[in-house]
């Protein structure tokens, strides 16, 4: 009776031993003998190893080895990575901490690939034309573009002027992506000096962003030049076109200006 009882209890799931740690452990060390043992003679017993043959040098510790990138499928738009449904390859730690844990992505297993295949056509999710488009929109909306025009020669503002000004500031913007205000701006007109307007930049024919611009007159003759103003972007100015005033007011200011205002408050 006792025996049968014992077997019954021992077979119960509570008492059964299971492997608690199911995770894979990387405990492989690749070693090399410091003194390789000599070859043994054919047909003879191998020579006994000496203690010097048991001294090893570490070739590789697989625990500290750099792991390969892993593939994940994004479930929503991630700045600098991609849109929902995109399969991206990222560093494992970044994937675990920044994407998988917050639920921004899932592992790219065959089941998940199939499950999230229709995500790319989901119209509810926010979509950007590219992974960097969001950053570009952010940057452009906060900048102040200095439009340097001549003080002597007559000019009328055209998209290529804006493109050149963008390029000088380190932004590559093609001419067809720039939309000027409908009202023509022409000069030289010292009333327009240091006054603001905005142009609309279209990124990849999709995202539209308004960029704050400020006119500055520049003379070839040094004596004619307008004196330098330190941190001119921190000084608030008026719109060139009165109709643009409400939009200019609602647009985000350059970061420094915001900081300065907060400090003063």
């Amino acid at each position: 009776m006792w025996k049968s009882l014992f077997t019954a209890v021992s077979k119960a799931p509570v008492l059964q031993t299971t492997d608690i740690l199911n995770q894979q452990l990387r405990t492989t060390f690749i070693l090399r003998r410091k003194t390789p043992p000599l070859l043994h003679k054919q047909g003879r017993k191998p020579k006994t190893l000496r203690s010097r043959h048991y001294i090893y040098e570490l070739v590789k510790d697989t625990d500290v080895e750099k792991q390969a990138d892993i593939d994940v499928i994004l479930t929503s738009y991630v700045e600098g990575l991609g849109n929902a449904g995109d399969k991206v390859s990222v560093r494992p730690t970044f994937a675990y901490n920044k994407l998988l844990l917050p639920g921004l992505a899932v592992y790219a297993s065959p089941e998940n690939v199939e499950k999230y295949s229709n995500l790319t056509n989901d119209s509810e999710k926010i979509r950007y034309s590219s992974k960097n488009a969001f950053y570009t929109v952010q940057t452009l909306s906060q900048m102040l573009l200095s439009v340097v025009m001549n003080k002597e020669n007559p000019w009328t503002l055209k998209p290529w002027h804006i493109r050149v000004c963008f390029r000088k500031c380190g932004y590559i913007v093609p001419e067809d992506a720039i939309t000027l205000p409908e009202k023509q701006i022409s000069g030289p007109n010292m009333e327009l000096e240091d006054k603001e307007f905005f142009v609309t930049v279209t990124i990849n024919n999709q995202e539209k962003v308004n960029v704050r611009c400020r006119i500055h007159h520049w003379s070839t003759n040094i004596t004619e030049r307008i004196p330098h103003v330190h941190n001119f972007w921190e000084i608030l100015s008026e719109p060139v076109i009165p109709e643009q005033a409400p939009i200019l007011e609602s647009m985000p200011k350059k970061r420094n200006v915001i900081k300065k205002r907060q400090a003063s408050i």
């Binding site: 034309s129 992974k131 960097n132 950053y135 940057t139 932004y171 590559i172 930049v201 990124i203 990849n204």
Partner: peptide, 15 residues
């Protein structure tokens, strides 16, 4: 390499 038509130059290889 830049992928978009509008981009901030400093984040990419020199054109």
């Amino acid at each position: 390499d830049p992928t978009d038509d509008v981009y901030v130059a400093k984040y990419f290889k020199w054109k």
